[in-house]
């Protein structure tokens, strides 16, 4: 990245297939514009998002990690999002505890009907990440 370019945060977005990825699809169908910083990785369920995914993304140089799934009570897999909420709460607390900026990790509930919300979640996240600058605290040097 050259100096005159604006810093563009790199975000890895883990989206559950049934709600948030579908919501993201709806944002597309509705042509709702949002920044291109977040690259989606579709998972079956947020309940399947291992804490390792989040840690690994940061280690690989992500400026922010987003995990988005179905609203409580709406999980396609009955209760995966509840399991995710508990695990990822711990991840979030731990990251903040060691001094990683809280805005580096985000979780959201976006249903298949919430295309607008999905776009807003990404917009907000990217805007919150900008002032933090590149995440180099735990990014591994590539050898």
């Amino acid at each position: 990245m050259s100096d005159e370019q604006v810093y563009e945060p790199k975000v890895v977005a883990f989206l559950c297939k049934w709600c948030s990825s579908a919501g993201s699809d709806l944002a597309g169908v509705s042509r709702i514009q949002y920044p291109a910083n977040a690259t989606p990785i579709q998972v079956m369920c947020t309940g399947g998002v291992s804490p390792m995914y989040v840690l690994s993304a940061l280690r690989k140089g992500a400026d922010g990690v987003l995990v988005s799934g179905c609203h409580p009570g709406d999980c396609h897999y009955i209760e995966g999002n509840y399991l995710a909420r508990r695990k990822l709460h711990l991840v979030k607390e731990l990251l903040e505890f060691v001094g990683i900026e809280p805005n580096r990790f985000r979780m959201s509930w976006v249903s298949a009907a919430e295309g607008g919300k999905f776009a807003q979640v990404v917009r907000d996240f990217v805007e919150d990440l900008r002032p933090l600058g590149p995440q180099d605290k735990v990014k591994a040097d590539r050898s």
Partner: peptide, 26 residues
């Protein structure tokens, strides 16, 4: 086999190791 974390004792990999350990011990 997944190389989540390298064995080298760099800050980033040590971070990964200790965070993983804390999560797995939660």
């Amino acid at each position: 086999r997944v190389r989540w974390i390298e064995r080298s004792a760099t800050t980033a990999d040590n971070f990964g190791y200790h965070m993983t350990r804390a999560m797995h011990l939660a």
